[in-house]
Amino acid sequence: MDADEPEVRELVAALARAEAPELAGPPGLEVPEAAAEEVIEVARRLALRAVPDGRWRPGSAPGLLELAAALVVDEHPSAPGWSAAERERLATWVAALIEHRGEDGVQDLLRALNGG
């Protein structure tokens, strides 16, 4: 499926509105299982590099937190074992990555989690 197809755009919009149904199947991210704290630390380190100087704490545009949770956090193979607080913390850092680096930030995160 092409990212420019209407169905894809509709799915992303629904995810951002938290209306998309959960789909059965394997996790969407091909990364090794890991403790939440380990994944949070990697995302935090990358996000802090991406956040402009002088901003001590990242803040994200509306909707990015939900998008980060739906497309990245919830798709991690270890996510079902993490607490709600851990998932929320990770989503905050992933949202900052998306806001400041876009898809490149997500790809950086995946590479780092895969040991690259």
Score class of each variant (00 low, 15 high):
L71R: 15
L109W: 00
L64I: 06
W56P: 00
A47P: 00
A84V: 09
A96L: 00
P21K: 10
E66K: 12
T92K: 12
G116H: 01
A24C: 09
E7Q: 12
P80M: 06
V8H: 13
A35V: 15
V31P: 04
E66Q: 13
S60V: 05
G81I: 03
G25P: 04
L23A: 14
D74C: 13
A68L: 10
A84C: 02
S78D: 06
E75W: 10
E66I: 14
G59T: 12
G105F: 06
A3R: 07
A34M: 12
R111F: 12
E88K: 11
L109R: 01
L67E: 01
R49M: 09
R9N: 00
G105T: 03
D53A: 12
L15H: 08
S60H: 11
Q107I: 00
P52K: 11
H76R: 01
E10Q: 14
A20T: 09
R45A: 14
P77F: 05
T92H: 15
D108C: 03
W82S: 07
Q107G: 06
P52F: 09
L67R: 12
A79P: 00
V42I: 13
D74A: 15
L48C: 08
D4H: 11
G115F: 01
P26F: 05
E37H: 12
R55P: 00
A20F: 11
P77R: 02
R57L: 14
E66S: 14
H76P: 13
A43V: 08
L71S: 15
V39C: 01
D104A: 13
E10N: 08
E88A: 12
E10F: 05
A50L: 04
N114C: 07
A85G: 06
L110Y: 01
P32T: 03
T92R: 15
E75T: 04
L71F: 03
A34R: 11
A47T: 05
L23F: 02
W93I: 02
R9L: 11
E19F: 08
R57P: 00
P32D: 05
